[in-house]
Write a protein that binds this DNA or RNA. Sequence first.
DNA 1: TTTTGAGTTGTTCGA
DNA 2: GTCGAACAACTCAAA
Length: 464
Amino acid sequence: MPNPQIVLFRQDLRVHDHAALVAAAAAGSVLPLFVLDDDTPGKWRTGSAGRWWLHHSVAALAAALQSLGARLVLLRGRAGPLVARLADELGAQVHAIKLHEPWAAIQEAEIGERLTLHPGQTLSSPPAVLTKSGGRFRVFSPFWRALQEQMPPAPPKPAPKRLTMADHAPAGDLLEDWGLLPTHPNWAAEFADHWSPGEEGGRATLDRFTGLVAGYAEGRNLPAEPRTSALSPHLHWGEVSAAEVWHRVAAAAEPDIAEPFLREIGWRDFAIQALDAEPSSPDTPLSPKFARFPHRDDSAGLRAWQRGLTGYPIVDAGMRQLWRTGWMHNRVRMIASSFLVKHLLVDWRRGSEWFWDTLVDADLANNTLGWQWIMGSGYDAQPFFRIFEPVAQGRRHDPTGAYVRRWVPELAALPDSVIHAPWEASPLELEQAGVRLGETYPERVVEHGAARRRALEALGQLSV
DNA sequence: TTTTGAGTTGTTCGA
DNA sequence: GTCGAACAACTCAAA
């Protein structure tokens, strides 16, 4: 009997296109393992919404493995020493898909020589496409050009037909005992209306999107319409591989039609390699001068933002969509995050922490890149004078107000002309809509013009 | 080494 | 209402 092969699942909760699972199955009997490790990642342990997703995704993976003849073993604790000890006890090899988050590198080092790493998190492997002089790209466009030269990625591997479960596998924990789901209160009550965690749900989401690729470039900025892929949580947890997404989308449309979406998958690679190169970036601005930025310690403003009570309808709609569904449309993420850091001057890390805890697709690389980008302190950051104007953004991307009406129902009866700026409504319009500013819906926490001037002044100080 | 062109997602102002 | 220019200076990547 050959040695047992431990397959350590982490952010690759799938059985298709899983190089580590395939290699293990070919080498002997298999012990699939998932470790709930809240220790190694420290502050960036899986957040609350992510835990809801993780619960269901682990259950789905266990069922998929069961149908192949294996049992997913669940353990809790610091993964490195725990896996190393189990491998020693069983005389096992360990297989895993290489991840590029800083905590993953620590786990991999702690498991040590028993571990064989396989590619699979990113489109290219290693994730860092390099410049002609061997350096890392810090600007997306040249990165994307170089990445495209490596495409297509390797074709997805089929799932193993049959697994032989290793002898002497520990019983492990019960998923229900991990307490990943919220109870009092159950703030995730609506999540299941919007999401189907797990590989099957991910593939169904991908199937649906292949019919929408052609309209993606035009429709992706309209938050009222379901025209984005909604693949982000499935990609974060690796329920479908980036390579499979690439192949399916590329097959669904002509190259120039598919490119706007494939670029976004390229951004995911860019974010992952950026975090790999800059492991402190979740906590530290990449541009050192931003350490001097005069953040305001505005706990009331932060709370208004978190609860969707800023008085700016597009911002509030986004923040409430996030709270209710664990997700926010990408266009609105930009508007809402810009509002926090530019209009309120709150430290971008307070925003990234909130997103980390509330997004079902919370991903350390994407979250970090996004917040540093909007702040202007990161790789390929936007110019400092680019301050989103929430009313103009709302009118441009939600012209009928359908998105605001859905998530901010107390404004639903306002006419289109003022739905994004209720303070511009006439007394009669307000009365007919049943809106009393300051009572049924808040006054603006800041006025745009004044907030913009204040932000420009604060940012201007950095250049002195 | 130096030079050159370019750089996800925008807003405001004045003609 | 529409349009183009200005908004800093810097860094990156390649020639």
